[in-house]
Amino acid sequence: MPEITMLEAIRQALFEEMERDPAVVAIGEDIGVYGGAFKATEGLLAKFGHERVIETPISETAIVGAACGMSYLGLRPVAEMQFIDFIACCFNQVTNFVAKSHYRWGAPVPMVLRGPSGGGVHGGPFHSANPEMYFVHTPGLKVIYPSTAYDAKGLLKSAIRDNNPVLFFEHKFLYRRIKEEVPAGDFTVPIGKAVVRRQGSDLTIVSYAAMAHVAMEAAATLAKEGIEADVIDLRTLLPLDSETILASVKNTNRLLIVHEDTRTGGIAGEIAAIVCESAFEHLDAPIARVTALDTPVPYAPPLEERFLPNAEKVVAAARELAKY
């Protein structure tokens, strides 16, 4: 099996799905001739033509609205946000129209809204956001945030085939930095299923996207100190796989949640609530979280480093938990 980047895995998923089903079309800014800001759609136009690779003006509301309208006629559009930060421009269209469509009118919206997100690349406050929680808080949507090339390909295919609007976050730090063997053929990864990346019995570290790699790095360091961590990669944030989290916490009795999103209102709070509700008597220590600061993503490298969680911060928090 060839080793490919996460970016290539996403590109392959788009190619294969468009080839498999003529109802799949791509829509977004600069996705055609240029191939997208990160080249995720490179080659699509040459192969599938202007009818299926629709280049739009800079108009996020129009992109999402049109994708929604196309899905009403049975198409499965994949809309791209050039940077996921720009999703704020079409917040109304996503949360008020797309998300409520099935509940309000019984009209399913089988569309995917994907885009590069996350920091660590010195993108500054307008090109580094992790806005997933606005949408995790929106019933009617599904929210995916993969951490590996294999998952990215399999989950994007599942998202395209799903009958509901799916937000697909692609961490731009991981785009070209991780490589792994991914089967060339057709496979899917189920939406709503977390995966245990590493098994341990001393504490549970729950994370996703780029922070899943940070958690793994921290777990390796902790193992040298004799602390064995169970590392869970959520992969899907909505619906949340609370079963996998609860099963692990019941075994390890300690929970540490790591995310790159800002602290207040991040998914750590929701997971902590679920664990307190359903596994309180299993906890031996308070639930800890390592998250980004409650600030916009800073631009200057030392500031962004301070802002983001890293393996050291995770290790320090885990050591505290291990004391209980």
Partner: peptide, 25 residues
């Protein structure tokens, strides 16, 4: 919200044309 249907119906029009339905939205 007001105006939301204009891009949505644009999408319907585009999809109709793509599918060869000859519809007008």
């Amino acid at each position: 919200m007001l105006g939301d249907l204009i891009p949505v119906m644009t999408g319907v029009a585009m999809a109709g044309r793509y599918l060869g339905q000859n519809i007008v939205a």
